[in-house]
């Protein structure tokens, strides 16, 4: 979408305002490929070796009949969930099977997330934001004409724009929730006190997850401890400002630089692995112009003459 306001103030260009069905399908493929890679290598079925009583039902699994609940937690059930997401993720790459694969894939992903959370204490971690984004993209696919999803075009589409802006807002709101909660719950004490050092020490002893131990550095070099405190404050401010990445290029660049660094730092220092969340930041990159340019290029190659019409199907 090109409004006069945007032409006058290029800094304040709405992200995904010019989104097309091709862009929506691009992100859908991206997220499902991410899940495909994750669950190809994640031996989910090993959870069937744990006592079922150790798991507590979470989310939709609470309303499931006991026999179904037990079946899902069996070796066969977990293998089927794993195979299901792999098949659905592959299905999303093909026009004819895209919508049904995405829908079933979202249900399977939610079941997997429920099973994993059932065995653990931490419920709001790593892949829940990207799971919600995948749901948003999938649900909006059903609001577009089916031919636009099976054979997407690079033509601007307002529904695709709403879909991608909603998905980006989900991601941005997740950051904003954490940032606001950190300010209101922790206050100034969280940034001035020893909280961060304590988290690093605690994280360093979580050698079940990763082996490195940086607690000595933080303890022996006060400058590093202070950098972490200032870094946490900066990250908190960026998290709160994240929704403004929708309208401001500068905020978008700041989020795109700061948050991956923060997630990498969290992996090293706290051993908190947020790979899926980090990859989801791709939503802050507008792929629509790139897809349109590529479609024009392909059309030029096919027709052997300069392309005049950018509204070309991308397949």
């Amino acid at each position: 979408m090109n409004t006069n306001d945007q032409r006058q103030l290029p800094e304040f260009q709405l992200l995904h305002g010019d989104a097309s069905s091709a862009a929506l399908v691009f992100y859908l493929k991206f997220f499902f490929t991410m899940w495909l890679i994750r669950y190809l290598f994640d031996p989910l079925q090993t959870l069937s070796n744990l006592p079922l009583e150790y798991a507590g039902p979470v989310g939709p699994l609470q309303w499931m009949p006991v026999a179904w609940y037990e079946a899902i937690h069996s070796f066969t059930g977990l293998m089927m969930l794993r195979a299901g997401i792999v098949v659905c993720a592959v299905g999303v790459w093909f026009g004819r099977t895209r919508m049904i694969s995405a829908m079933i894939g979202c249900v399977v992903l939610t079941m997997i997330a429920c099973v994993i959370r059932g065995f653990g204490g931490q419920i709001n971690h790593a892949e829940i934001g990207p799971l919600l984004v995948t749901w948003v993209l999938t649900l909006f696919c059903f609001r577009l004409p089916q031919d636009k999803i099976s054979v997407p075009t690079t033509q601007e589409h307002p529904t695709a724009s709403v879909a991608l802006i909603t998905a980006t807002m989900v991601l941005a709101l997740v950051y904003a929730f954490v940032g606001i909660a950190r300010l209101t719950n922790g206050g100034v004490e969280l940034f001035l006190g020893d909280t961060i050092q304590r988290h690093v020490t605690r994280g360093s002893y979580s050698d079940w997850v990763l082996p490195q131990n940086f607690s000595n550095w933080v303890r022996d070099y006060p400058a590093i401890a202070w950098q972490l405190k200032i870094g946490t404050l900066l990250v908190t401010l960026v998290e709160i400002a994240a929704p403004f990445a929708l309208i401001s290029k500068r905020v978008r660049y700041v989020v795109l630089i700061t948050m991956p660094l923060f997630h990498l730092g969290a992996i090293l220092m706290f051993k908190v692995i947020f790979v899926e969340q980090m990859l989801s930041l791709i939503l802050l990159i507008n792929v629509s112009p790139w897809l349109a340019a590529r479609a024009r290029q392909n059309a030029t190659k096919r027709s052997q003459k300069p392309a005049a019409d950018p509204l070309v199907q991308t397949g």
Binding site: G59, T110, Q122, I123, V178, N185, D194, R198
Partner: peptide, 15 residues
Amino acid sequence: TFPLVNWSMYTEVNA
């Protein structure tokens, strides 16, 4: 309400 969850994490003062 999972997967609609409360997002507070590392938000408390650790003393």
